[in-house]
Structures are given as C-alpha cells and as structure tokens.
Design a binder for these strands. Structure first.
Length: 441
RNA sequence: CGGGGCGUAGCGCAGCCUGGUAGCGCACCUGUUUUGGGAACAGGGGGUCGCAAGUUCGAAUCUUGCCGCCCCGACCA
C-alpha cells in the first residue's frame, strides 16, 4: 500500500480522554475513532490488525476441531426467557422492541440461542461430541465503558460452545480449548497466564481466565513466575491433554477474587509475582445449566434421555488489539508483533522525486509485495523526521530507509522497530533479510 | 449506580469570576526558501461557543433544565 493513497488519519496531539497507552496510540495512529461511549469506528489500520487477530484465533480453533458458524447479533427474547436469563441478565443487556412490539435484544453472548439451535437438530449420543464457534459482534451496555476498545460496549468476540454426553467427556473438550487458547495467545506474541476463575453455582475446577500482565490491567493477579514464560504447548494429542492441562495449572495462579493468601505464601518468595492483568479469554464448563431448562437432551445407548453437558469459551478479539499494544509499545509508539502487524514492513523514501530513490523504493515495494510481506510505502512528500516519527508511531516491525545518500554507497538502512537497531545493507540483502524474518510467522 | 470533572475550529487549550467585535498552538490551503530524525517565513480558509428556555439594550460569559463525554469507585456469564 502506498501511504499517499491510504486512509491514515494520524493525530500529533493526544486526545485528552485517552489515559492509557493503547487507547492513546490507537487514536494517534488512526486505528479507531470513537463514535459514542464504548462504540468505535474501526479505521483501515485498526481493522487490518483486528482481522489478523481474528484469523489467528480462527486457525487455532480449527486446529482443535472446532467448527465455525455465524449466529446473528439480534436475538429474540424468547430463548432468554426460557433459561430465565432475560430477567437475570439485567441492564447490561440492550433490549429492543420491533415494529410488532416483539422483544428483541442485541446479543451479549449466545448460549441460549445455540442451545436452542442444537436441541432441534441433535437427538442421539452418536451426534456428540460437537464444538461450534463463531466470531461475532456483541453488545453489553457497560455502566462505565473505558480504556478505548479494552472495555467497549460493542466488541468482537470469539465464542465457542462444546456439547458432550457427560462431565468426563466435557472435561476433554475443555482441555482442548485450554490448549487452543495457550497456542492462540502464543502466536499473538502474548504471555497469557491461565488462572482459576470463579465457577459460581456450578462448582468444580473448570473455569479459567487467561490474563496478560500489564500495569494498566483491570484485575489484580497473583501467580508463580514460571507460568509467565512457559511457552505455548503446540499440538497436543488427546492422550496428552490431561497431562498438559495439569502441568499448566499445577502452579499457583489466581485473580484477586479467587486469591488465597495462604496458598500463595507457599510459593517460593523469589517466584511470587503479584501484578495487574488484562483478561483476554475466559473458558467455562457449566454442565446442564442451559440444557436442563431448555430440555436439550440426547438419547444414550441405554435409550434414556440425558441432558447435554456444555461449556463455553470466549476470546475478546477487539480487546486483544488494545491488549497487545499494552504489552508491546514504547515512548515512540506501537511495536507490533510480526504475527498481527498491519503491514509487514515500512518503506521510507527520504527524497520523493529523486530518481534513484524513487526507482529503488518502487523495486523494493514490488519485491516485498511479491513475497507476501505487504509493505507500506511512505511515498509522501514530507520531511524525513516526520516520516520516521510516523513509522515509529504505527509500529511496523521493520523499516527500510531509502535515500540518495545511502544509494550512492549502494545501501539502504534496515531498522528493527523493537530494538531500534539499524543496519546498512544492499537492497537485495534487505529484501532477503525481511523475508527470512517472516519465515516462521 | 455513588463521587468528581469537562463540553469554545479536526486535535490540544485560553477567554467565563467582573456580560459589550470569538482567540492561541498544532493540523489544513497558497507561495517562497528548505529537505537524512516531527523546518522557517508570509498569506489564507474553517467555529449557530453541546442543546433549549430565562434574565438583559446586549449572553461563550449570569440562572434553570436537558444532552453528551471523561476520571475514581462499585459492577463485569
């Protein structure tokens, strides 16, 4: 993409209502524009990142056998009345009335709808297990939206639902999603720690929140330090699921509402970590909480009807855009992980109009594009300083700096955004360098 | 929902107390000189001062009501 043709409304000054880094940078880098409290327009740059995150979430869901579908944003109140949640959910649910005075709502989640759908099609234990998911916009009328897209009212969420014959089978489904979440966050360049979460009236140990550590997190967290740097497990066979889960949950990790100071004290002092975290995922086994009131049952091998055991698994896709920036930025702007960067590399032409510079840039642009790097070419007729500041702000992992001065020596400058390291190399070497850097992404 | 604050040009703000021609910086447009880490000068465009009543000869400024937004807290399957 040529910058001169892109829609990238950057702000030099920080809007006064942005108080945390991710919100400031998302506004300044022209990623989003607030339309009203907690509701955002996704501008082209922000939209690109959102789609990249969505795709990684999707791929990791598919890898564990989850099947994608799409449910509507507007739901009938009927399903919610059947489960009793229409009254229980409270004012966070946006209620709508249509022209025929029918009660509708903008979905804050989809358990009720998918349980209704599932029961109409599935009758036999032979149809289980199933794991369905969708990535869809949700609306929760938060009392106090804040921190930009981190706590919006309208937000994009991946929600998956598992259907099993009994609690034991459900546990395996839960482990699979647990592993998928570790791999998803790993690919996003995040260190997300699973922590025991409140299971409410269901009980048991099967609910975990995944949190990334950040000073601006809304939750207070306590955990064993070794959990933070534990690498993602990668593909895990069914036989190894349980062991993997147990290994990841053996060490102490809890948010403040589940915190047990006495247990935490047993963690060696030099391994105790108390910090703040951003919740980016939450997985939950809830048995027959919905299948029982909705009579979502299957017939077992013994001929008896039995309630389906369910779980749900959420990832805040739009929140992750902010979360990743919270975890990866510096004083000059965003530092994108390679997996989600809106463009693979930036090309800075220091002297637009200079034939050698124009030709060299056009050539680099063509070669990087052909290699699938998707470069952003700053071909605007601005001064160097402005271009450098701009490219640092939007945070592409690599910058290629091309000017007449370097070209006389036959070199271009390659800057790595994360480290600030600059190296001169020939244009050919620069292209090869960038391509090799993206080899494993 | 409790407490606090703010709405004046796209963004950041001053002016309001003490009513009388709506300002500054950045951004934007034109020109000249510049051009390797957010250039300088000159000229220019852009605002029913959140909305509505009221007081007044006269309201951005005073009064009342409403709307919107932000911050702290509580809340957040």
């Amino acid at each position: 993409m040529r910058l001169s043709r892109y829609f990238l409304p950057l702000l030099k000054e920080t809007p006064s209502d942005a108080t945390i880094a991710s919100h400031r940078y998302m506004l300044r880098a022209g990623m989003v524009k607030q339309d009203s409290a907690g509701i955002y327009i996704w501008l082209p740059l922000g939209f690109k990142v959102l789609k990249k995150i969505e795709q990684i979430v999707r791929e990791e869901q598919n890898k564990v056998g989850a099947v994608e579908m799409l449910m509507p944003t507007i739901q009938s109140a009927n399903h919610w009345k059947e489960t009793g949640r229409y009254d229980a959910y409270g004012p966070e649910m946006l209620r709508i009335t249509d022209r025929g005075d029918r009660e509708l709502l903008y979905g804050p989640t989809n358990e009720d709808m998918i349980t209704d759908m599932f029961r109409t099609f599935v009758r036999s234990y032979k149809d289980l297990p199933q794991n369905l998911y969708h990535i869809q916009w949700k609306f929760r009328d938060e009392r106090r939206p804040r921190f930009g897209v981190m706590r919006g009212r309208e937000f994009l969420m991946k929600d998956a639902y598992t259907f099993d014959i009994d609690a034991e089978a459900s546990r395996l489904s839960y482990y699979r999603q647990f592993v998928a979440y570790l791999n998803t966050f790993g690919r996003l360049g995040l260190k997300a720690v699973p922590m025991r979460a409140d299971t409410g009236p269901i009980g048991g140990d099967l609910s975990h929140e995944f949190l990334i550590l950040a000073e601006t997190g809304e939750s207070e967290v306590f955990c064993h330090k070794d959990l933070v740097d534990m690498p993602a497990p990668g593909a895990v066979s069914d036989d190894e699921l349980k062991a993997t889960f147990e290994k990841r949950t053996a060490l102490y990790a809890a948010t403040d509402e589940m915190h047990d100071a006495d247990e935490f004290a047993k963690v060696p002092a030099d391994k105790q970590l108390s910090a703040r975290g951003i919740e980016v995922g939450h997985i939950f086994y809830f048995g027959d909480k919905y299948s029982d009131p909705m009579k979502a049952q299957v017939q077992g091998p013994d001929g008896k009807n039995t309630n389906i055991h369910m779980g749900s698994y959420g990832v805040g896709v739009s929140r992750l855009v902010g979360g990743i920036i919270e975890a990866s930025h510096d004083d000059n702007g965003i530092v994108w992980p390679k997996s989600v960067t809106p463009f693979g590399a930036g090309i800075i032409n220091l002297k637009v109009g200079d034939e050698a510079a124009d030709v060299a840039c056009a050539d680099l642009y063509a070669k990087l594009s052909a290699a699938g790097i998707d470069p952003l070419y700053d071909d605007k007729n601005d001064r160097g300083g402005q271009k450098f500041a701009r490219m640092d702000l939007i945070g592409l992992p690599y910058q290629l700096v091309i000017g007449p001065r370097g070209l006389k020596e036959g070199v271009v400058e390659v800057k790595t955004r994360a480290t600030g390291e600059k190296q001169n190399m020939t244009p050919e070497a620069a292209v090869n360098f960038i391509i090799s850097e993206y080899q494993d992404v």
